[in-house]
Design a protein around this nucleic acid. Structure first.
Length: 424
RNA sequence: GGAGGGGUGGCAGAGCGGUUGAAUGCGACAGUCUUGAAAACUGCUGAGGGUGCAAGCCCUCCGUGGGUUCGAAUCCCACCCCCUCCGCCA
């Protein structure tokens, strides 16, 4: 959520930012409504002041035993008028809040301006893309042949876009999760979290999934509860409605969770294998930071995610998303894209974002610099560290051998009980 | 799922229709004392918003949302959450 005061002060800047994001949101409606609300609020408050004054007078008169009838009827009139004006105010305020909740974040100045992902900017590349001496197979083929990935049976029990891992395939998934968690916890100083996988609508509002992206989530029937689309939601909301003391910042959390996405509107895209499923595993990094250091924190968080790919020897590149490709809540996002031989392209495997105070304002995550200071909104960041299913796919494809086996990279061997080749 | 109990400031805990934004204690903060610290004493101590150049003035908040009333932390209704016991269950 944007600060209404910024919209008031600098509407042109907001409008430009929205246009750069391909948003047709009409700021002027917000400004008009904001003015109405403030006018109405002044009315309500002066009526309340009158009411309070009359009530105080009656209290005093009763104590002194003087007549009260005149003030009581005066008070009744004020009360009647007040309730009418108050109802108008509530309605207007709700409308304004509803509009504000739909405005995306303002991109940071460093974000490349452009209308879609073609304007994304490559920041760096790491690793050599492997040249195969044979025709490489996609991971769903490799997995099926090795008996470690079974998409057919998964769709029989659950439908399309679900995966069944088996034997060393399941083991590999678990190995990846543990490897990533160990790296982030033991070497990079994150605190491990295992959060609830269902959250209420307030939490979904806090991180920006609601109200606009309801269709992308699985809702529990008959309840105001959703399956989490990412650990970002419960983990960022750990400190919802809290005032932290400034010296605990930065707070760094890592969580492994399954993620659930309805993926409305993605029909026909990435229909095979592990790339785009309704349920997938992810290790997520979340950081709460001081405002002035949040871009350093973004750099740190992104390189913490990159370390995962580097240890696994997976070639990747880092891309700065353009204004047109940026997510709703984000002020700046780096995507990490891993080389996927079956796509003959780099595919997103991690997305690291600085939301600045956008989520913190929605979720009420604040801090005080010291005991006397006014509370300020913290900055929130998160990034995948990294998507496990996509890593599974990328690894299996990059490490496949001509005989159909898959070599296990050194960093993972201890997590695979010493297995160095899958399929031997 | 059933039966009770309870949600008040950072914490504990009063208040149960009229100077109560809220007693009291603890904590925190500032100060006095002290070579320093502790103790003791004194003072202070929530958040959000409107308006104004400012000083200030005003409004809101006692789980949440409604209602009654001139006036609600206090009365009524609904919901949410927590605790205890029983049932069920990995």
């Amino acid at each position: 959520m944007l600060d209404i005061r910024i919209i008031r002060q600098d509407p042109d800047r907001i409008s430009l930012a929205l246009r750069n994001r391909n948003s047709d949101f009409d700021i002027s409606a917000v400004l008009r409504l904001d003015e109405d609300v403030r006018k109405r609020k002044a009315e309500v408050e002066s009526l309340r002041a009158q009411r309070n004054e009359i009530a105080a007078r009656i209290a005093k008169a009763k104590r002194e035993g003087t007549d009260v009838a005149h003030d009581v009827s005066l008070g009744a009139n004020v009360a009647r008028e007040l309730s009418a004006v108050e109802a108008d105010l509530v309605a207007e305020e709700e409308r304004l809040a509803g509009l504000l909740a739909l405005i995306p974040n303002i991109p940071h100045l460093s974000v490349p301006v452009g209308k879609d992902d073609s304007a994304n900017q490559e920041i760096k590349r790491w690793g050599e893309v492997r040249q195969f001496s044979f025709e490489p197979l996609p991971h769903w083929e490799i997995g099926a042949r090795l008996g470690i990935l079974d998409m057919d049976r998964a769709s029989r029990m659950s439908g399309s876009r679900f995966a069944l891992l088996k034997g060393l395939g399941a083991r590999l998934e678990r190995a990846l999760v543990n490897f990533m968690l160990d790296l982030h916890v033991k070497e990079q100083g994150y605190t491990e979290i295992f959060p609830p996988l269902m959250v209420n609508d307030k939490s979904m509002f806090g991180t920006g999934q609601l109200p606009k992206f309801k269709e992308d989530m699985f809702k529990i029937e008959g309840q105001e509860m959703y399956l989490i689309p990412t650990a970002e939601v419960p983990v960022t909301n750990i400190h919802r409605e809290e005032v932290l003391s400034g010296d605990v910042l930065p707070v760094k959390y890592v969580a492994y969770t399954p993620c659930f996405r309805a993926e409305a509107g993605s029909a026909g895209k990435d229909t095979r294998g592990l790339i785009r499923n309704h349920q997938f595993n992810k290790v997520e990094l979340v950081c709460l930071s001081l405002p002035e250091t949040s871009y350093d924190a973004l750099e740190g968080l992104t390189s913490d995610a990159e370390a995962v790919l580097e240890r696994l020897g997976i070639p990747y590149r880092r891309v700065a998303l353009s204004t047109g490709d940026l997510g709703f809540s984000s002020a700046k996002t780096f995507d990490l894209e891993a080389w996927l031989p079956s796509y003959n392209a780099y595919r997103e495997i991690s997305s690291c974002s600085n939301f600045e105070d956008f989520q913190a304002r929605r979720a009420g995550i604040r801090f005080k610099r010291d005991v006397k200071a006014k509370p300020e909104f913290a900055h929130t960041l998160n990034g995948s560290g990294v998507a496990v299913g996509r890593t599974w796919a990328t690894m299996v494809e990059n490490y496949q051998n001509a005989d159909g086996t898959v070599t296990v990279p050194d960093a993972l061997v201890p997590y695979m009980d010493g297995v160095t080749v899958i399929g031997k």
